[in-house]
Design a protein around this nucleic acid. Structure first.
Length: 485
RNA sequence: CGGGGCGUGGCUCAGCUUGGUAGAGCGCUUCGUUCGGGACGAAGAGGUCGCACGUUCAAAUCGUGUCGCCCCGACCA
């Protein structure tokens, strides 16, 4: 039934002592991923794929609800096509993987393995679009992409990764910008309400912009080590790609114009963020809405009383029919061993049914978001109330995980108007440092050189006539500075 | 790409300095007893020490190279 090797003792180091070691061990031991024989590429195991499927399902529903359709474009991009948008090429060239040979024949033109699909999709849009009546085009694709990375970590940075990339074309700059912001908000909503990861959403500085974009927006989460994780990006590409790929249409005023395009993406990196944000010393804590298994049923048997197994099977079926994602763990292992195993794997709720429960018609519910032996961590409920109680419990866990993460973000967001304090906070990797900023590239570069921190997202200045906290020039925006992944 | 660390049964690691063809714990298999927070007993199976070349009578141990992994930094989702 389970892909878990029975009986293997799995330990992970304390999270606070070394987040990196904890993170890698947690991903591996929880059987989300395995390293593969291919450098920098991981295998997404069934439990990890379950996480990805839940992300897919819920993001996809949001895309459909905002009028988008899915399509699929080729993995290979002929070199000549990729080269058409100059900034784009320059940005991605260092990390593009190339196919130079097919079978035994050298190719006359190299094929890039897509690092992102603006090029190939732009070429197709040029063919498909003739009139303003063909617009907007709102397409998303779920795909893998390859970027030749030097250092990799599960989910956060791998050479091949899974993501979705939306590519839209519009008749006006206004529409394109609206689309860009609509998706930014969609991402923010998903991060907060499904992944339970609180984020700051906003515009990126010029240096952090996607190569070829007019404006880039992103959502930024804060990891427990004080580093920010860019978790989703939405780009307003203006007419840059339309001009490079010759995507034109006849507008209602009979004038031939270039379209305005956008692109936006979320990758499995979001899973890495969710793992780091919610996990604890016992392992993963998966928010219910993302959990491949919402509740695991553990029967407790005695040598003279094995009824709990049948009861668990029956209740498991009932809950499953009621729409819950459950698993019955009837393996021949000690109950305590199973508890630890499912704690590590982050299942939100454990349902224990032993001889006492069988006799009383009850079950014990244990919630993963609380410490062992913390008041309210376990409770006994009548079987008749199980489904209802489970529903409430899952909702409460979803809320509580978000609340905990939100508290952390709030407590690690520092508003300062003091220059020395600003540098100190950045250098110490204290979290998100919120200052009035001049938006000058030189200033940003200087802060980075001195502290390692960069701007994460920018937003409108709430007062006028003030100066940049970092350099003293006139301030133009408010900016969150942080070190980042 | 720079700095540091590491690769020995499934896992965690010892052995390497002072070369003499491999050990522990956990896990795994079988049987029995157990089972409300990682059970116990008995009997078994399993590696040639990342890979290549070199030194040597002899290499897990020494040398060179290479591949991979981890951490820090630079770069990127």
């Amino acid at each position: 039934m389970s892909e878990v090797a029975a009986g293997v003792v799995k330990e992970i180091p304390p999270k606070a002592a070394d987040l990196s070691a904890w993170y890698t061990a947690a991903c591996l031991k929880a059987e989300l991923v395995s390293y593969s024989p291919v450098r920098g590429c991981v295998v997404l195991r069934p439990y990890g794929f379950g996480l990805w499927e839940n992300l897919q399902k819920q993001l996809d529903a949001r895309f459909k609800a905002t009028g988008h359709e899915n399509a699929y474009f080729p993995l290979f991009i002929p070199e000549s096509l990729l080269l058409k948008e100059a900034e784009h090429v320059e940005g991605f060239a260092p990390e593009v993987a190339w196919v130079t040979q097919g079978g035994s024949e050298k190719l006359t033109e190299r094929l890039a393995i897509r690092p992102t699909s603006e090029a190939i999709i732009g070429v197709m849009y040029a063919q498909w679009i003739e009139s303003y009546r063909d617009l907007p085009i709102l397409i998303n694709q779920w795909a893998n992409v390859v970027r030749w990375e030097k250092a990799t970590r599960p989910f956060l940075r791998t050479m091949e990764f899974l993501w979705q990339e939306g590519h839209t074309a519009h008749a006006s700059a206004t529409e394109a910008r609206e689309e860009t912001l609509r998706i930014l908000e969609l991402y923010r909503d998903f991060a907060e309400n499904v992944a339970a990861v609180p984020v700051y959403a906003g515009r990126k500085s010029a240096s952090e912009r996607f190569p070829g974009a007019v404006e880039t927006f992103s959502i930024e989460a804060l990891m427990p080590d004080g580093k920010a994780l860019q978790s989703g990006t939405s780009h307003d590409l203006g007419q840059n790609f339309a001009k490079a790929y010759d995507i034109k249409f006849v507008d209602s005023d009979r004038v031939i114009k270039h379209v305005y395009t956008t692109s936006w993406g979320v990758s499995w990196r979001m899973l890495g963020g969710l793992i780091m944000v919610h996990g604890d010393d016992r392992g993963l804590r998966i928010p219910p809405k993302m959990a491949p298994i919402e509740a695991v049923l553990v029967p407790i048997v005695r040598s003279n009383d094995r009824r709990a197994i049948e009861v668990c099977a029956a209740i498991g079926k009932e809950l499953s029919d009621a729409g819950f994602r459950v698993r019955v763990d009837a393996r021949d292992e000690q109950p305590g061993w199973k508890y630890s195993e499912w704690d590590l794997r982050g299942v939100p709720v454990r349902i224990e049914i032993g001889p006492r429960d069988v006799a009383a018609g009850t079950a014990v519910l244990a919630r993963r978001d609380r410490e062992k032996d913390e008041p309210g961590q376990r409770r006994s409920v009548a079987l008749g109330d199980l489904a209802g109680t489970l529903r409430e419990l899952l909702d409460d866990i979803q809320r509580s995980l978000h609340a905990q993460a939100k508290t952390f973000l709030d407590e690690h967001t520092f508003v300062t108007a003091d220059r020395d304090e600003f540098y100190e906070l950045c250098r110490n990797r204290a979290g998100m440092v919120d200052i009035a900023w001049c938006e000058r590239a030189e200033c940003e570069a200087h802060v980075k050189a001195v502290t390692g921190a960069t701007t994460r997202v920018l937003r409108a200045l709430d007062e006028s006539g003030i100066r940049c906290v970092a350099c003293g020039e006139p301030a133009k925006v408010r900016a969150y500075f942080a070190q980042s992944y």
